[in-house]
Design a binder for these strands. Structure first.
Length: 417
DNA sequence: TCTGGGGTCCTAGGACCC
DNA sequence: TCTGGGGTCCTAGGACCC
């Protein structure tokens, strides 16, 4: 049996948590660069604000209705997320963090326990300890747990336990196909065109047809809806397979020197994430993008993947290769709006791939990176950095509505009035 | 003027091996 | 007329997730 837990309107709920006077008020949280809406309180949803709406297009509507607008504050969200996960972890022997606001938990092997009661208690504890509103779905497979969670939200319940297939059958024909986990925009179009409107309709299809239309993943979803387990919970501490840092620029960039600053800065982030999870990368991908919304601009989306001479997580080594990649794809004459760096081919830090033709400097680099991490942890991110990351960083993103870091900076802790 | 950032998995096709 | 049969590995692109 699986439980799927998620936090309702997560980013908006985090902002409200430290501003209780915003209870019942319209709240939206904007993406990096304050570009578009990525989280909404129920009141904002009721107003008709959609996920992904551009800020400048809904600005008037928000202001007219007295909405509270926030820039994304990932330091705050990451910390609140960790608090919830830690609370939940006490209720299971295995928990898989699925995203910043969701996880799956194994809740089997508990003979004699009343599941409804167990889930209700677990929810109360998390709400009490973190202040975050959560919803819980329980089912025989991960897909059914997700299904139960969604159904709970639809029914305005705090949790829903679908521990028998009878309970699934009772609601599956009222469940819209687009709400199914694994059905996105193009499958939605394909399925509704074939007359499949509900999860029940989908489950009645021939498995061969499902696989042909939606690959093996669609077939897995189909099986899971029948109660056959296909998704296994991964180990919580598994290394990720790719680590990416990418961001839009504040203004269009045309000069190589500023793109170098940005790419070097993103590379430093990637290298530091690699070190945190004790991994090294074998390949680095660098990409640039122009603004696809500007029909009057020439479009250019270059991307290149380069091999490192040997696996590394050193900021200096990775930066050297990332800049080489950037110079290979950079073409003057375009208005670049975004760039990014991805580490791929990730291996455990111990397994070094030596190269016959290149002198190995791994130990020195590891020592240097460790020292940088220590200094930056003590004096703040970016205190010690590679020179090419730049000093002014005039391309850096806009965050006009940033809230305090209530839980991660001493200066920002709320004081009694 | 202004339109996010971070991931996963699967498939097809090409390069290459014997 | 007629040009093998069996693999592996890698990459790009497309679907999905939050």
């Amino acid at each position: 049996m699986f439980a799927h837990v998620d936090i309702n309107n997560f980013y908006a709920s985090c902002q409200r948590l430290f501003r209780p006077e915003l209870e019942g008020k319209i709240i939206v949280v904007l993406s990096n660069n304050d570009g578009c809406v990525i989280a909404r309180s129920d009141e904002a949803k009721a107003l008709g604000i959609k996920m992904g709406d551009a800020e400048f297009q809904v600005r008037d509507l928000l202001n007219k209705n007295g909405a509270y607008i926030f820039s994304s504050n990932y330091a705050l969200y990451a910390d609140m997320s960790a608090r919830m996960m830690n609370n939940l972890a006490r209720y299971t022997y295995m928990l898989m963090v699925y995203s910043i606001d969701e996880c799956f938990m194994a809740i089997d092997h508990m003979p004699g326990v009343d599941l409804e009661e167990y889930i209700a208690n677990m929810r109360d504890a998390v709400v009490q300890n973190t202040g975050l509103p959560i919803t819980i779905g329980v089912g025989k497979t991960a897909s059914l747990a997700k299904f139960a969670n969604r159904a709970a939200k639809r029914a305005r319940k705090k949790y829903m336990v679908l521990d028998t297939m009878d309970k699934v059958d009772a609601i599956i024909n009222d469940f819209d196909i687009e709400d199914l986990w694994g059905v996105g925009f193009s499958y939605y179009k394909k399925l509704t065109a074939a007359g499949i409107m509900t999860a029940g309709d989908f489950r009645r299809q021939e498995p061969g047809w499902v696989q042909k239309q939606m690959t093996i993943q669609g077939l897995r979803l189909w099986r899971e809806l029948w109660g056959e387990q296909c998704h296994v919970l991964n180990d919580l501490f598994e290394r990720s397979k790719a680590i990416c840092s990418s961001k839009s620029f504040n203004t269009y960039q045309t000069e190589l020197c500023y793109l170098e600053e940005a790419i070097a800065t993103y590379t430093a982030t990637v290298a530091s994430k690699l070190r945190v999870q004790e991994s090294m990368a074998l390949n680095i991908n660098v990409f640039l993008r122009t603004n696809k919304h500007r029909k009057d601009h020439d479009q250019y989306y270059p991307s290149i993947t380069l091999k490192l001479p040997f696996s590394s997580n050193s900021t200096a080594e990775l930066t050297k290769v990332a800049l080489q990649a950037l110079r290979a794809i950079y073409t003057p004459g375009y208005y670049y709006m975004k760039g990014g760096v991805t580490a791929i081919g990730i291996v455990p830090a111990g397994e070094v791939q030596y190269d016959v033709f290149t002198e190995y400097q791994g130990e020195r680099q590891t020592e240097l990176s460790g020292l940088m991490d220590k200094i930056n942890a003590r004096y703040g991110k970016g205190t010690l950095r590679v020179a090419i990351e730049g000093y002014k960083k005039h391309w850096i993103m806009k965050q006009d509505y940033l809230s305090p870091n209530y839980t991660t900076r001493w200066q920002d802790i709320i004081k009694p009035i």
